[in-house]
Design a protein around this nucleic acid. Structure first.
Length: 276
DNA sequence: CGTGCTGTTGCTAG
DNA sequence: ACTAGCAACAGCAC
C-alpha cells in the first residue's frame, strides 16, 4: 500500500539491509508490469553489481549500483519489496527476484502489476522522462508555501486535484491529500485560485505533518522489513478522515462525508473544512 | 457459486 | 486544460 511514507519506509529498510550487497542473480518471472521490462537490459545492468545507495524521488525508489546504473522501482498500487532468505518458498505475484551473495534476496511482489522496474544508466538519468516533470518534494525545506501559492493562483481546479498533481507537488497521493486538507481545514473542492497565502501555509504544514507522522509509524515496522510479510496497514489507525465515512470528526463530531472527486474517493468533515 | 463494486498510481486518449 | 478510461487482481457485499 504505497504512498510516499510507505515508499520512504521501504527505502529506509533497503538502506539498512542491502547496501553493500552484490546482486548475483536476477530472476524475472513476469515482465509485463505497468511497462514491459526489457529483460536483457535489466539483467545486464544489475548482474554482479554492488548496491551503493538507495534514494527516493516522489514515489519512485532508486537503487544506485556500482556501475552507475540505477534500478528505478515504482510500487504502483499494490507493489512491495520483501527481503527474504532464498530458502523461503516464492509466493504468487513474486515477479522479480534479485538474489544476493549471502543467500538473501529481494522480491518484487505486485498482484495488480501496476508497478514498474527499469534500469537507467547515469547518462539516461540526466534527462529521464519520468522525473522530468516532477514537482518539488513536499518534505524538502526548499519547497515553500509562497511558491505553491503563486503556482496555483491561476488554477481553476479543485485544490485536492492540484495537491495530487505530481508535476505541481511530488508524491502526495489520495489518502494523504484528504488527510492534509482535513488538518488544514480546507474543503477538497475549494477552487485553487481562491486559496490564500495563509491557507497555503497551513496546507503545506499539514501535508508535512501527515507525511512525517506516517513515516514515523512506518519506522516502527522497519525492523520487520527483513522478514516482512508485506503490508500490515500500520498507518490506518491514525487516519482522521480517509476511509471513515459516517464516523465522527475527531474535532467536532460531525459525520465525515465521502464523495467521488475526479474518479477518486474524497473524505472530509463538512463542518470543519471550508470551501471559501 | 457468481456478480458487481471498490481500490493506495500514473499514463494516455479524446 | 481537463477528465474518463485503463492496466490486473483481491477482497468484500450481496
Amino acid at each position: 500500500m504505497p504512498e510516499l511514507p510507505e515508499v520512504e519506509t521501504v527505502c529506509r529498510g533497503l538502506r539498512k539491509n542491502i547496501i553493500g550487497k552484490r546482486i548475483s542473480k536476477l530472476q524475472i518471472r513476469i515482465s509485463k508490469l505497468r511497462w514491459v521490462i526489457d529483460k536483457n537490459k535489466l539483467q545486464q545492468a544489475v548482474i554482479n553489481e554492488k548496491i551503493i545507495s538507495v534514494e527516493r524521488r516522489a514515489k519512485y525508489i532508486l537503487i544506485n549500483l556500482n556501475n552507475r546504473n540505477t534500478i528505478v522501482i515504482h510500487l504502483g498500487m499494490t507493489g512491495n519489496l520483501r527481503l527474504k532468505s532464498q530458502s523461503v518458498p516464492l509466493e504468487k505475484h513474486d515477479h522479480l527476484i534479485f538474489s544476493f551473495d549471502d543467500k538473501s534476496e529481494i522480491r518484487f511482489h505486485d498482484p495488480r502489476r501496476f508497478g514498474m522496474v527499469e534500469a537507467v544508466s547515469a547518462n539516461e538519468m540526466s534527462n529521464y522522462s519520468r522525473f522530468a516533470n516532477l514537482g518539488p518534494e513536499p518534505l524538502e525545506k526548499s519547497t515553500r508555501a509562497a511558491d505553491l501559492y503563486k503556482k496555483s493562483s491561476k488554477s481553476k481546479k479543485p485544490i485536492k486535484n492540484v495537491l495530487m498533481d505530481a508535476k505541481f507537488l511530488a508524491g502526495v497521493g489520495n489518502i494523504y491529500a484528504s488527510e492534509a486538507l482535513y488538518y488544514a481545514r480546507i474543503h477538497p473542492e475549494k477552487i485553487s485560485n481562491t486559496m490564500t497565502r495563509k491557507q497555503w501555509t497551513a496546507l503545506l504544514r499539514s501535508v508535512r505533518k501527515v507525511l512525517k507522522a506516517a513515516i514515523k509509524k512506518g519506522g516502527t515496522t522497519l525492523s520487520d522489513f527483513a522478514n516482512s510479510e508485506g503490508n500490515s496497514g500500520y498507518f490506518q489507525l491514525s487516519l482522521a478522515v480517509y476511509g471513515r465515512e459516517g464516523e465522527k470528526c475527531p474535532s467536532c463530531k460531525t459525520k465525515i462525508e465521502k464523495f467521488t472527486q475526479s474518479g477518486r474517493s474524497s473524505f472530509y468533515c463538512p463542518s470543519c473544512q471550508s470551501i471559501d
